[in-house]
Structures are given as C-alpha cells and as structure tokens.
Nucleic acid binder design. Sequence first.
RNA 1: GGGCGUGUAGCAUAGCUGGAUAAUGCGUCGGCCUCCUAAGCCGAAGAUCGCGGGUUCAAAUCCUGCCGCGCCCGCCA
Length: 595
Amino acid sequence: MNILREHVEPVLGNALESIGIQNPNWKSMLAQSREHSQGDLSLPCFPFAKQLGKNPNEIAHELSELIVKNEAIGEINANGGYLNFKAEAKWLSMQLLSGKVRIGDAFGKKSDTGRQILIEHTSANPNGPFHVGRARNAILGDTLVRLHRLLGNEVRAEYYVDDMGKQVGVLAWALDNLSDDDVDSILEDKDSVSTKWADKADHTRVRWYQAAQKLRSDESESQTMEKEIGELVHASEHGDESVLEQFHNSFQPVLDGMLETLGRLGIEFNQFTNESMFVTNGDVAKLTKTLSELEIHGVADNGAEYLDLGARGLKGKTEFFFKRGDGSSLYATRDIAYHIWKWSQCDELINILGEDHKLQSKQVGMTLQELGHKVPEVLFYSFIKLPEGKMSTRKGNVVFMDDLLEEAREHASTIVRELRTEYSEKEVFHIAESVGRSAIRFNIIKVSPDKGFTFRWEEALAFEAGSAPFIMYSLTRALSIAKKCSDNGVDVDEISNKILDFASMNMEFPDSLINLLRCMAIQNDVLERSVNQCRPNLFANQVLNLATSFNGFYRDCKIFYEGQVNELYLQVSQLASKFLKTGMEGLGITPLERM
RNA sequence: GGGCGUGUAGCAUAGCUGGAUAAUGCGUCGGCCUCCUAAGCCGAAGAUCGCGGGUUCAAAUCCUGCCGCGCCCGCCA
C-alpha cells in the first residue's frame, strides 16, 4: 500500500536509526502484510536480530514503542518478530474519497506518464479463423494495451500483417486455380463450413488454403503447383505490385473476418502494418547490406548469409540466416527491419509472442543490439491445449473462437432468461453477449501467460465466483443500490460529492468496509506491478479481489436502511463502482448496469 | 543431445523482487432469500508446494542435480 508507505517510512526510518540499524535495505523489506488481520504494511525484524543481539520480537516491540503515530497510521503492533502498521480507517477513507488515489481510464488516449508505447500483438497470418489457441495472443495483447492505458501510458496497438511469402501465396494460388467443386472434392473427408459462418471469409477461404496445402503434399500435383506458387512468392518478395495486389485481394476478406471475431471480444487495433512495406521501401535491402558488413557476418557455400550469434553468447545453433542463397530475404530479416521502424515510432516496444517464437525473438533481439538498437520487451505465452491434446486445425481438433463466442452467448442467455424473466429479449441478448465475451477473456487472462492450459468448455462457460460474470455482478449490485437510493428521492450525486466530516464521526468501521477500502487503495500498486512485469493475470486477480471485497461490504453495510441513507457507505459504494468499472475495462470485461 | 519454460489439495489455478497459519474457484459436506440482484454470502473437510541436495535467522519462492510435461533447435512463416 504505497499511500501508507509514504507516511510510515519517515517515522520508521527514525526509529530504526535510533536503535542503531543502518541497513539501508529496510525499505525493500517493508512490504504488504501477508496476514491482513495484522496490518497493511509489515517489517520483518529477523535480520536485525544478529546485529543487535536481541530476539526479533523484542526489536519489533522496541520499535513499536519508539514510533510516533501520525494521521495515517492507525495502529502499530509487534507480533512474532514482525512490526505491523495498519492504516487509520478514517484517514484511508478520506484519501480515497477525496480522490487522492488515481482511478485511471482504460481508454485514455493521451500520455499522463510521458511514456509512449507500441504494443504489437496477434499478427496472425490471415489464412483462417481464430481458434482459442491463437486468440490467447490477442486477448493477452489487448489486455496489456488496456492496462498500460489505465496506468496512463500512451499506447499504440499494432497488427503486423503478413501480406507476402508462402502462406499468402498458397491462398492466392488456390483462389485463382481451384473452383468450389475442386475444393469440396479435395476436402471431401473434412467437415464443410458451418452454415453459421458461411458468410465469413475467414471460415470459407481457409478451405482453399487447406485444399492447396493438401495438393502440395500430393506428389503428382505438387510440382507445377509448387513452381507457380514459388513464382508468386518470388514476385512478392521483389515488390511486384500486381502480385502484391492479388495477395491483398486474397487475404483481406479473411483478415476482415478475423477482425470481426476480435471485435466481438472487444479487441481493436490502432494500426496495421504490412510486411511488404519493408521490402518495397528498400528497408530490407538496406538492412541486409548493413548486416553483411558486420564483424560476426558469415557466408555459406551457396552465398546465403548469416550472423554468428555464438560470438555474442547465443547457445545452441548459433548461425542466424538473414539472406537466402538466391538473395531473397527471410521472415526474420523483414522482422528486424520492422523493429527498426517500430523503434522510430515510440519509446517502448512490447511484443506478444507464442513460446514457439522464443529463439526467433532472441535472434532478432541480438541482431538489433548488434545494430545499436534497444531490445523490445516480449511477453511469451504458452499454448492452449484441448483435453484431447494439441490444438490443430489440420486434424480438426479445434475450438473456433466464433463458435465459443456463440456458445457462451447462448449459455448466458439461458441463464439470464431463467433468472430475470422480466427482461426484454433485446436486453437479454445484450447482457448475454457481454457476459459471454467477458467470461472468455477473463478465463484466459486470469492464468499466468507462461503456463500452458487446457481449454475446457465447462470452465469457459462457468459464470460463478472466479469468473468475469462474478465481477460484473458486483458492479450491477453497486449500481442498483445507487438506483434504489435515487428512486427513493436521495440525491446520489450530491451525497457522492459531499465532503464528510470524519472528525465528528464516531461510528465503527466494519472489517468488511476496511477490507474494501484497503483493496481500492492497493489497486494502482497492483496495476503497476502487473504492467511492469507484463503479467495481466496479476491485475485480473486484483479486480477479482475487489469484487469479493465489495460483496463482503454489500453484505455488512446497508446503504439504504429503514428509509435512511448512510452517506459514508454510499460514497464508498460509489467509489468502489468506479474502481470496479475501470478495472473491468482494463481487463476487457464489459461493465453492465444490470444483469 | 542442447536451449527455454513448467510441475502447488480430487480437478483447475494464485502466490515465485525469500518472510507469519500456503490463497482462490470447481467438486464434496453443512447453513443463509418476509432483509440494497442468491450469477451471491457464511462455515467444514481436503496440501510431504514433483523428488533429493545447497544457501539463509527464514525457501513454494534463490542455486544445484534428478524425474515428468510443453515449446524450440529450417537458407519456413
């Protein structure tokens, strides 16, 4: 709790000095109490024991007597070798209610911090619909974008479009050479497109891609085909405009379909950058020339060029190829050109990548460093599996995000209809859509990115405690209380803005109220840690805790009781709904007024 | 074989810049709607934090060895 820390450190510092502790590390030892009943901040006194020749608890007691309380510190106690500080409940309330604790805005456009950040995420090849596995990138990336904005950073969310190279080439070739019937007969053993998605190009066109891939693996067909695709790819890599246009026309509808899915999840981008840009504008050519002049540069028998990153400490396979024998560039080379360009657009760079890109990313980073650039920060995530095993479009072992979204909405509709028979169909639809998308996002965000997890329908569609709907529900309760008050003639805004006279207040602060205050007070501390460590799950957990704390407060503290409004409780509830709302927006959970 | 990551109650996870009684959800058992939305709340049972060693006043957390699982080790993207 950093707002308390400021008031503890000076007095604690003096006390430590007076008993002869010089150790400057004590500030990092003063930490959030683990035992909430003991306090908000705690200092373990064990390390001082040897130095002072006393037992830790004695030291803690001695310190507790030396410290002069101030307005912020409500209680100091020594227990089991720890010195604990508890925030004064009235002071904490005043800090929060008077707006000393920043609430933030997940949609903020301007930079409050002066930091300009470019986050590249998703960047999936536009050749087919999203499945839940591929969507982990988008959900993590978008959440990080939102959290950075909530913290006050200016963020640009960017999608790097692979508009050249073999994958797009295959798609373009297939669309040009295969008829509907061809595709159907080639893929006869595969399920056809669900009628639900018959109008979505990501679902329909992927069949052309798959058909072509199947043909390529077939000896008799593959030769001429491979030659034709090769020519397309070659032309694209040399910036042939008509081929690039053909590519564009092939993949754009697919990309649009994919973006529609992401839109449903609340994910949007500020900019799309095409890979071909760096070929056509000459950046790649310039780059390969520069790389060829580096001291760790090497040439293979056929003229292909590489950097020997072993010389810079890379273990394992150390040759990093950036130019083929035929002189053309590789994906990684273009990626480096892209990174150099990105660095010209921002102060900080963050990439969201699957764990399969670790080596690649390392190579790009080392090369950038070799060229005098900074290394981007990277959030790696592990893959999502299905109970049946690895997710694979080819093997048909997939869950499409579109299907998951539909299923989640339908499931939510069923629940809403059961629980709220008075709601209109239109409202049910709106609630169900919001609940579905929020639950899906939260289910993925709440787990640590570097942990692989298994997708289970029951879990994705569980709308109980520990889920997004649980959080959403807390907010609707808070909002419904405010509504109840105003329905009873209470001027909620007036009371919310009133400055309460804490000095003459002699009511007890229930534990659950203090708990909620404490939870709001640390929201920004957690946000900062979550963002700095690139771990959205930490903040997800915080918002979950906030919702839980609110539920406790809701239980114990009646805001409107026997015709009377408790002004303090109403103010706290209103503030909590703001923290809940912005926290939810930071996670991409849709705040609803009722559900 | 080498590199990176991961292993926590029946299940799924949090905690990993070392600090108190290892936290949460699902599941199990028991309670709470004349009372601001029960998608909620309260209580109970359930854990040798993969295994061994080390560092430390203190290890789920740091180091090391082993074992299991995942990913990577293309002049593919």
